[in-house]
Design a protein around this nucleic acid. Structure first.
Length: 488
RNA sequence: GGCGCAUUCGUCUAGUGGCCUAGGACGCUGGCCUCUCACGCCGGUAACACGGGUUCGACUCCCGUAUGCGCUACCA
């Protein structure tokens, strides 16, 4: 394929939505695969709802995902004159006309029709199309506001969509739709057609919520005497309950996924596989592999539900593939944000941090989990998990057991896994217990919780001083509680 | 309501008339590993929306029905 030019055209009325991002990804993959251009156009013709901060946020999310675009960003708000000129041309050609009917008049007509369960269509009366020239000039002179309507021809429109095949729509369903609003701004339909033509877009890849609008666009392309691009409508992304993805389902903005600790590569991988399949059984695709494999024929017709569980799994896969050093780099901001450690600490304890990262890597699903998951490597436990206390610290002999353990460890100079393990196992044997019966209480004393990486690795990293100290603390804790119980 | 589009395990999907007693992945679940939690490994659960055709043969083609989604704005 030659001269592939596609565009992503978000409306800055909100953050970059997951669905929008997926559309952007498909466009980007298609362009990159075929050596074409991927253009970015901001559809900000709805002044009331558009905002500059939103544009910035959308751009930021695009960059995070690594969706680099070609050329300058096109802002529709900067092209109002172009649309006006094109609308005027259509009027001059008799393919569109000015309509002076007020919104209120039309609204009441719509309601009257609705009462009789009828569909009001402007083209039924076309009041403004039958006005005399003098009347129109008089209106214009007094500065009466008007919209420009497309004069809908009879017949039907047939077009072919790369995903959905041939679509046929009878014009009876359509109306003399507005292409220019009374404030002079173009509507979506006009702007999109004019811009896609001027930007020489070869393939319009967009959400299938526009499938029903496409006949209008085809009509406009024909009215202007322009060839239509190839239409490629992609299915929507829905929430886990198959309803339109909304805040109820949690995050809908790409930025929120970035914040909650997902990797851009994993998110890209995940979104690419929503509504598209390469045809084989792979789940993990690098950016390059996605470009390599992407093909319009793999696009699904059915809308897809967003399954965050799978995203988490995928993210975990990416996390595990990272080097310790790279993961540390990514996770450091989390450490700093939670105040667990300082910049200074990071600089001085890299080797230690790298070892922690190595232990946490297969357990981590999202970056933000790191602080909570590894806090006991930086500070002594403040509390002991209640359920674990009941389970592992029960019985009067537990204090004695921890004491014996502490004494043994105090005599050990080199805190290495290979030396620690025999100490604990032999103690268990002497006590005629399984090793777990010694390890679990120990883990609780050292970490405050019931789960952690292998206890010997944890001890080695913590070092003798902290292990002894935490054992003493745990023993004190148990003793004071024993007294409490005795008193009550 | 009208019109358009869709419909394979809970979810993402493979499947383009016989290869399907429907494959993979996530999830869930049994087990192994094991000091716990993860990771990893082995196994299990679970789907062609329904009804009619067409055909020697239908998950695959056609028609209905149901359900869902979209459009039906001076939003995009």
């Amino acid at each position: 394929m030659e001269n592939i030019r596609v565009r992503f055209a978000p409306s800055p009325t909100g953050y970059l939505h997951v669905g929008g991002a997926r559309t952007a990804i498909f466009n980007w993959l298609f362009a990159r695969k075929h050596g074409g251009k991927f253009l970015l156009r901001i559809e900000d013709t709805d002044v009331a709802r558009s905002g500059e901060e939103m544009v910035a946020a959308i751009i930021q999310s695009m960059q995070w995902l690594g969706l680099n675009w070609d050329g300058e960003i096109v802002y529709q708000s900067a092209r109002l004159e172009v649309y006006k000129t094109q609308a005027a041309q259509l009027i001059a050609d008799g393919k569109a006309y000015k309509c002076f009917c007020s919104k209120e008049e039309l609204e009441s007509k719509r309601q009257n029709a609705a009462r009789e369960k009828l569909d009001y269509k402007y083209k039924h009366d076309r009041i403004c199309l039958s006005r005399k020239t003098e009347e129109i000039t008089a209106f214009e002179k007094e500065g009466r506001p008007f919209v420009v309507r497309f004069k809908l021809p009879e017949g039907e429109t047939v077009f072919s969509d790369r995903v959905y095949g041939e679509i046929r729509v009878n014009h009876a369903q359509l109306d003399d739709f507005i292409i220019q609003r009374s404030d002079g701004y173009p509507t979506y339909h006009l702007a999109v057609v004019v811009d896609d033509h001027e930007m020489a877009i070869s393939h319009i890849i967009r959400g299938d919520d526009h499938l029903s609008n496409t006949p209008k666009h085809v009509l406009l392309f024909h009215a202007f005497g322009w060839a239509c691009p190839i239409f490629v409508h992609v299915p929507l992304i829905l929430g886990p309950d198959k309803q339109r993805l909304s805040k109820r389902h949690g995050a809908t903005a790409v930025g929120e996924y970035e914040k909650s600790g997902y990797l851009a590569e994993a998110f890209l991988n995940f979104l690419s596989l929503l509504g598209w399949s390469s045809g084989d059984d792979r789940e993990l695709f690098s950016r390059e592999e996605l470009i390599q494999e992407f093909d319009l024929s793999g696009i699904q017709k059915k809308s897809a539900g967003f399954d965050e569980k799978k995203l988490e799994w995928l993210n975990g896969q990416y996390l595990m593939a990272l080097t310790d050093r790279k993961l540390l780099e990514l996770v450091t901001p989390e450490f700093l944000k939670t105040g667990l450690i300082s910049n200074d600490y990071v600089a001085k304890n890299e080797a230690y941090l790298l070892k922690i990262i190595a232990l946490m890597k297969p357990r981590l699903k999202r970056l933000v989990e790191i602080s909570e998951m590894s806090c006991y490597f930086f500070k002594d436990p403040q509390t002991y998990e209640e359920k674990a206390v009941k389970k592992h610290w029960k019985g009067p002999e537990i204090i004695e057991q921890l004491n014996r353990l502490k004494n043994r460890l105090e005599n050990l100079d080199d805190f290495k896994v290979s030396l620690l393990e025999p100490v604990i196992r032999s103690l268990a044997e002497e006590l005629d217990k399984g090793a777990g019966k010694v390890i679990h209480p120990l883990r609780l004393a050292l970490t405050g919780v019931s789960f952690s990486p292998g206890i010997f690795e944890v001890m080695e990293l913590l070092g003798k001083d902290r292990v002894i100290k935490r054992l003493k603390t745990a023993i004190h804790f148990l003793e004071s509680h024993a007294i409490e119980h005795a008193e009550t």
